[in-house]
Design a binder for these strands. Structure first.
Lengths: 204, 204
DNA sequence: GTCTATAGCCAGATAGAC
DNA sequence: GTCTATCTGGCTATAGAC
């Protein structure tokens, strides 16, 4: 059946492209390599996606749409700050252990085209930091957490969760641990990161 | 004079290559673009550096040698833990504000060639984490800081200092601040990061 | 040491058979 | 929808004049 075959091929291409683009980036990837990875011919890539640029954008948007909802949790849910931090750290790290190249891919390509982030956030109706800021400021006023700018706290949460994956080669080298041990450290971080943050901000 | 002209041109090429490679990476950079940036002819790049690969390696090693000594401070100096954290955060962030593309460049290319880090650390006689680990474990035993694995603390210090620059486009978008405000946040972080870490680990 | 011109290759994209 | 063959342009690298 044609219909089934169509969607399967299109899907295979997108998956193969995801693997190659995430490893090598837009500039380093080769259409031939993606075709080989998908087990089909190079001409098919153009048949389904017209150009390398459009194929890349399809991959990037899919990757971003996998990460974006998790950020939403911390900016826009109704949980308390500490619960948010624990939930987000646990969920995000679990997710990225399964998709280790995703954060680096997104960060990297955003650095190449910084203007792209505006378009992405706009078309996803992405929540801004306002709700989170109010929540933080209230808790400070109530004496629950120590004074800290909401932006700085948010940056710290992102840094502690995301960087260990992006900086893995450097950190493995400097801490002198092998891949298996490093992965264990990442699993520990599902709770360690939240503890570290909450210890820092919580009063009493 | 030939001698003077030589070194000047070689230096100009390296600087131009630094700017282009840091923006576009190895795969994305073009020799023609580097030549234009240096205001000379493309053939000169090959005259001085033989190939794109060798020019790239010269740029990368120079970049790494600018960052490496700072890591040394935190792993191998004789200061107390808290002093190390304050000094490193202040010095590193001051440095990177002046060279904002450097961390992303290094992290990025290490992800493309993870085996490269071993060669770099070996030939620089780079200190490992042992001294830092002992220091942390001692302070925990003395009841000065709360229990935490030295590796996790080290990863956290790196993450909080480095990520805000690598993830700047994403973080600017999510926190909805303009470039000028974001730079102010980075300047605040020279002390904010150390406070955040020390609040988290210090007992009493 | 510096340039112009070009060799030689490789990648993205398309034409056209099946 | 899928393939082979090929066009076209752009890139690294070099040859050779000055």
């Amino acid at each position: 059946m044609n219909k089934t075959k169509d969607t399967t091929t299109e899907f295979e291409i997108l998956n193969a492209a995801k693997r190659i683009f995430q490893h090598k980036g837009m500039a380093g990837a080769r259409m031939q390599e993606i075709a080989d990875e998908a087990g089909i011919n190079k001409a098919m890539l153009h048949y389904y996606y017209r150009s390398k640029q459009l194929l890349f954008e399809a991959v990037f948007k899919k990757a971003f749409s996998m990460i974006a909802p998790q950020l939403n949790d911390i900016l826009n849910s109704d949980l308390s700050i500490c619960e948010k931090i624990r939930d987000f750290s646990n969920n995000y790290i679990s997710f990225v252990i399964k998709h280790p190249y995703l954060p680096n891919f997104i960060i990297q390509e955003l650095n190449r085209s910084p203007e792209f982030i505006q378009k992405l956030l706009a078309e996803k109706h992405f929540p801004n930091i306002e709700k989170f800021r109010k929540q933080v400021d209230n808790k400070i006023a109530e004496g629950i957490i120590r004074p800290i700018k909401a932006e700085q706290l948010f940056i710290n949460i992102m840094a502690l969760n995301i960087f260990p994956f992006i900086g893995a080669p450097l950190l493995k080298g400097l801490t002198n641990v092998d891949d298996k041990t490093y992965k264990k450290l990442m699993i520990e971080r599902k709770t360690e990161v939240a503890d570290f943050i909450i210890n820092s901000i919580k009063l009493t």
